[in-house]
Computed example of a mutant assay.
Amino acid sequence: MNKILQIILWIITIVAIVVVLSFVNKSQKSRVFDAEQVRVNIDYETENRFVDEDGVKSYVFNVKDTTNKLLGDFDVLNIEQKISGNSAIKDAQVYKTIDGKIIVNVKQRRPIARVFTRNESYYIDEYGSLMPLSNNYTSRVVVISGILNEPFASRYKFNYQNLPDSLSSKTLLDDLFILTNYIDKSSFWKAQIEQVYVNKDLDLELIPKVGNHKIVLGGVDNLDNKFSRLMVFYKKALPKTGWNEYSEINLKFKNQIVCTKIYN
């Protein structure tokens, strides 16, 4: 008897929920759209400002929509797709609330490096994908320049964190992502390294913010070892000699640091 009663109660509860949801859905569809009820939440934790509230709202509605358009006329999935089509946006979630609001939650992509080739410039984001520049905002990240011929149009579809082996020998961008991602994950090196330069031998050189020297890294092999040696040199040698004693610090050679002095 108790089991039968429990089943009946469950059925009544389910029916009640369906009725309430149906009522809410019908109420939403017949509600007149109010532009003031659109709420936009943008993830600004990374301090990037590629998109703003007005820009996001332009994907949700236009001037015509503010005159006697019903809330039910807005397709949230379609709005999400429009917003996600913005190259600066990583993810967009759109939904309607019971009280008639349209909520838009946006997460921006986070660049970790800016590439300058002979003819163009673009970003590499934290996931290894290429990202075009924005007219709204310029991100302060490590700059990559030098002997580079990596056109955005033929490279942007690749994710350099998961680049196929068949392509890895055809581009420097996978190595540049590995290096800048390593720098990005260290608060010290992120604050210290200003630029990565690709020289004529395709060696990677680092230009620090402090000091007049350049750091010849070579390739991206053994990064832990190379940066550990550099850190020891920074802590033990440079405080004694001064930050402007050397023009070059070379880490290419195994377990060695080869320095070139500045001669006046």
Rank of each mutant, 00 (worst) to 15 (best):
L176E: 13
T13Q: 05
E53F: 04
L223C: 01
L251Q: 11
W10R: 04
S121L: 06
L9Y: 07
K214D: 01
S58Y: 04
V40T: 06
Q256P: 13
F177M: 09
I11E: 08
Y246H: 05
D73N: 08
A88M: 15
A191I: 07
Y234H: 06
Q195R: 15
V104P: 06
S139T: 04
A16L: 07
K200M: 13
K226N: 00
N119I: 14
A35S: 07
I79Y: 11
Y263D: 14
Q108R: 10
S58C: 01
E45H: 00
L70S: 11
T46L: 01
Y182K: 13
T117Q: 15
D201N: 14
L204A: 08
Y95V: 09
P132M: 02
I144A: 01
I42V: 02
N255V: 12
I147K: 05
G242H: 01
N78S: 13
Y263R: 11
V141F: 05
K240C: 02
N135Q: 07
N222T: 04
V51E: 02
N2I: 06
I103R: 04
N62Y: 01
W243F: 06
D99P: 11
I147Y: 08
I124Y: 10
E126K: 02
Y137C: 05
W10N: 05
S121I: 00
Y246R: 04
S84W: 05
R109M: 14
I257D: 11
L173V: 02
I79G: 09
F158Y: 07
A35V: 04
R118L: 14
L223Y: 02
N78W: 09
A113D: 11
F61G: 02
Y95P: 04
V196A: 13
K29T: 00
K90D: 09
Y127K: 05
R140C: 00
I83A: 08
N41G: 00
S186L: 12
S87E: 15
I17P: 03
V141G: 00
L21Y: 15
W10Q: 05
K82Q: 14
P111M: 12
Q37A: 06
V220C: 00
I4L: 08
L179G: 10
L167S: 08
V210Q: 06
S129R: 14
D125M: 04
V106C: 12
V20L: 13
A92I: 10
N2A: 13
S87D: 15
L173N: 07
A35K: 07
F23A: 09
R140K: 10
S22P: 04
E36D: 10
K107P: 07
K29R: 06
V56L: 01
V198M: 14
Y246F: 15
E80Q: 15
G72W: 09
D224A: 03
K96P: 07
Y127L: 02
Q108P: 09
Q93F: 13
V15C: 07
K69R: 15
S169H: 06
A153K: 12
E120N: 12
D65N: 08
L71S: 12
F158W: 10
Y246N: 03
R114D: 05
V19A: 09
D91G: 10
N225H: 04
D91R: 15
V106Q: 12
S30K: 13
I102F: 10
C259L: 11
V63P: 03
D43Y: 00
